[in-house]
Structures are given as structure tokens and as C-alpha cells.
Simulated assay, not measured.
Amino acid sequence: MKASDLIAKIEAYAPRELAWEADPIGLQLGDPGQEIHTVMTALDVRPEVVQEAIEKHVDFIFSHHPLIFKPARDLDLSSPQNKMYADLLKHQIVVYSAHTNLDATKGGMNDWLAETLQIHATKPLLPNDDGVTGIGRIGQLDTALTVEEYAQFIKEKFGVVAVRVIANDLQRSIKTIAVLGGDGGREYPVALAAGADAFVTADLYYHTAHDVLADDFVVIDPDHHMEAVAKAKMVNLIQEWNRAMQWQLDKVFASTINTDPYTYVF
């Protein structure tokens, strides 16, 4: 099969028009007409991820976060970022990224996060015109928990050493939960207005956290890397397509590299 065959299925599942206007989604690097045999999914495409792909003879990387957020100013290979591009080209590895379109689509990132967080009967937090797709999700826990209990549950589910909790009362009971993958601090007023008892998102800004407390709301921040749950889900999608389309890909697997840039010292 060709890379373009897989790209067509990804774009049918997570249509490009769902992406935010300035989001650099799509084919990042490589030849879409190239034949592919081994696919690796990744949250981020970093030099260590590319080295893993080279060692495992990958010829297509499907990532959530775009490879190229900022255009290269030169091709100086002493730059680790440029060297990474050169390595990808040298080893003929195609890179395709689905970011905010995968966030917004039905059955995409925010549904995977809601499933992990055991939020049920969900609907988009910021719906598109169709009412089905959109950024974020809001729904219900089966049983009300305290903020502290749910924060501990989230910590264990995402396998992180700590979560940041912004709340006036850790013993408050919560049941209606909103989630937005990635940096969702600016959307906390939307979650509050939608009737959420708590909002799970990442990268909350210091002064925004003060606003959350002033509004007597609850935000739980388990780190942007919580989106790594998508790696296995993306593998499942490609394996389903491989069977249905009889593509006969040799191997589909998730990157084993932890690309979380943060280290916590206790």
C-alpha cells in the first residue's frame, strides 16, 4: 500500500476541516506516493522517537502533535531539529500529523480521554455546527466522588507522579466532568457555564488558576502528556483499517518513548 492510502483513511476519520485554522496538520514530511509496511504511532515526533523509528524500520509515523510547528529558517544540521528532519528523509519515513482535527472528531482524542476518565453520556464541550464533533467533552461519572478522590484516580489512570488541583475544597463532591485535551485553561469558563463540577485539562496558567478559585470552580491538571493515551488508540484504528481494507501492513505499534518534557523532584 501507499502512504496516501493511510492518509486518506485518517482524513476521512478526522476531517481536515475540523482543525483550527492555524494548526499545521497533515503531511509533515515525505512522499505520499511511497510504499509503506511498518507504521508507528506517537504523541510527539522528537529526535529520540525518530531514532526508535529508524531502529524498528518504520516507514510511516502517525503523530498527534505536528512535527513542524515552526518553519525551519535554515538547513544547518548542527541543529537537533534539522538533523531530525534529515534523518527522516534519509530513512524515507513519512510523517503525518492529526492534531485539533483528531481532538474534535467523534471517536477521537477527547472521546478517548473521556473514556479513560470514565465520563459517560458525553457531548462536545465546544460543539461544531453538527452538534456531534467539537473540542472537549462533558458528561457524567457513574458515582459522585470528592475532588481528592477523583484527582487520585486521574493520577493512577495516567500513570503520573502528581496532578495539579485547583480547588477551594478537596472534599467537594463532583459528578459532572468536562475534559479538554492539551492546553484548555482559556476554556474553563465554558466548562463552568456548561454545568461542570470539575474540568480536566492541562497547562493551566498561574493567574488563570487564581481566576478558577475566585469562581469557586475545580480544575484538575494531569499534565499535557495525558494525551499519550492516544498512541494505543491510534494503533487500534490502523489495525482495524488494515483488516477491513486488506492492506497487509507488516506491523503497527505505538512508540515506547516517553516524550513528557517535565521531571518532578520531591
Rank of each mutant, 00 (worst) to 15 (best):
K2V: 00
A3V: 05
L6M: 10
L6N: 00
A12F: 02
R16N: 09
E21L: 14
P24Q: 07
G26T: 01
L29G: 11
I36M: 04
I36C: 07
H37V: 07
E55L: 13
V58E: 03
I61R: 10
I61H: 06
F62L: 11
F62K: 04
L75M: 13
D76Y: 09
S78T: 15
S79V: 03
P80Y: 07
K83M: 15
M84D: 11
Y85H: 14
Y85N: 04
A86P: 02
L88R: 07
H91W: 01
V94L: 12
V94N: 11
V94M: 10
Y96L: 07
T100G: 15
L102A: 13
K106G: 04
G107E: 08
T116I: 06
H120M: 05
P124N: 02
L125T: 07
L126N: 12
L145Q: 15
E149H: 04
A151H: 04
F153G: 06
F153N: 09
I166R: 00
D183R: 12
E187A: 14
Y188N: 11
Y188H: 15
A193P: 04
A196Y: 04
D197P: 08
A198C: 03
A198F: 02
T201C: 05
L204T: 11
D211S: 14
A214H: 11
D215E: 14
D221N: 09
Q239G: 05
R243P: 00
Q246A: 13
W247Q: 11
V252R: 12
T256S: 15
Y262R: 13
Y264R: 14
V265P: 09
